[in-house]
Nucleic acid binder design. Sequence first.
DNA 1: TGTAATTTGTTCGTATGTATA
DNA 2: CTATACATACGAACAAATTAC
Lengths: 255, 255
Amino acid sequence: MADDLQLKPVQPVRAYERVVEQIEDLVMRGQLKPGQRLPSERELTARLGVSRSTVREALRVLESDGVLRSRAGDPRGPEILPFSPATLRKAMTRLARVAELGLGELVQFRMLLDSAASMLAARLATQEQIGAMEAAIEEMEDAVDRGYAAFSEADVAFHDAVARASGSTLIQVLTDVVRGVVLGLIAHKIADSPDSRTLMATSLQHHREVLDAVRQRDGQRAARLARESLYAYYAEYVPEAERPLLRALLDDPDA
Amino acid sequence: MADDLQLKPVQPVRAYERVVEQIEDLVMRGQLKPGQRLPSERELTARLGVSRSTVREALRVLESDGVLRSRAGDPRGPEILPFSPATLRKAMTRLARVAELGLGELVQFRMLLDSAASMLAARLATQEQIGAMEAAIEEMEDAVDRGYAAFSEADVAFHDAVARASGSTLIQVLTDVVRGVVLGLIAHKIADSPDSRTLMATSLQHHREVLDAVRQRDGQRAARLARESLYAYYAEYVPEAERPLLRALLDDPDA
DNA sequence: TGTAATTTGTTCGTATGTATA
DNA sequence: CTATACATACGAACAAATTAC
């Protein structure tokens, strides 16, 4: 007998899975576009030749994946949704919890993303995109006196502007997701900080420097400043033991 | 009337969603660990006070999220699974298709991940982890004569070793995911390349240089070489129009 | 080895509340 | 406001699969 035939164990394919695949395929191929409606459950039952329960299980899975939404009583049928990073965020959040990602690793990854985004922004950003960064900085200046919440909001706007200017959808989405997880872990600590005003002023200055590097089209400097800025802002909330992870991304890790 | 009360529209919460939440919570809190079993569908029906259909819809969603697996006839009940990046990969793949991510953006992101991984590996890797990289390189050397498939496998092993040595789970998982998407898009093109042998030899030399920089603990050099290596390997498959995205990550983008 | 018991996979019927026209 | 079609949810039934004895 040939002993090295590549035979894999066969697992039964359930009916609802084939329904999910069919609908997913239609969406992937663009035959079903956001806003369009799927036939009603009863019609799907008839067209697919499976029971209502099977159709429903498939719809629940697709719904939880953010592919569509079905509402009770809507005679137009389930609605195909536009893509949203919600599923990615869910998966990422689970990864963070189940894999027990430390704050250190999350901040490290943010440094990585923001650094790359700043590099790309310096080299590729349009004047309009640079204008959006400038507007966000002005908003931050105004917000210093209005407290941490307002400042944080403007800060997010700045980083979003940079991420958009990077031209990379992946960087944009992942920045959004990772920031959400990080802020969820420590927002209250920063808000409660007694010298949060000093923190904001320092952070604002760092952001100005990044913007300056972007304006001068100096990608490497923008990237370096972005890393240093995040390190300065978050390092104190990261446990001592994990700080080497952050420092390893700085140009001079032993300084 | 107060006009600025933050009132959001309430959307009905369906029964199966509350079941999903309960079980997801138990897994998140570590009260249900991988390998453990959930009660049977009928017992869940009784304990949760909902019908079996509702329980099943919840189980299907959890199954599609990779949280558990239920097999027909298994009297021990659904099994809690260890975390796997499968969901992340699924979400990422959908993002790539639906957001119409070009090959350029995907390769760009790989450059970014591999660059960071190499930098971190140079600064943090243990001798054992460096040994794994060396072993992968030797495997690549052997594989040059055995064709693209074998070479690609060894190549993957090298990048995995680097990603592991980076100490970052996020880098590790995302490298795996993005590589899967990229290879899915162009593996056949490389395999069919007439001068694939030359390509392999060049790539092998680049990998040796990265390893050398890691051995010498030169993070910045390792990162730069990693970017250049990926650029050299993939650039020709990336449409002309998207290549500036890749070059923007090189130290000298105009060269 | 084979068989019995239990579980999941799937279907069908029904009652109820809801959104749309 | 009403009629209609819809989704939600329940429960019973049978087939197929798995385990354990």
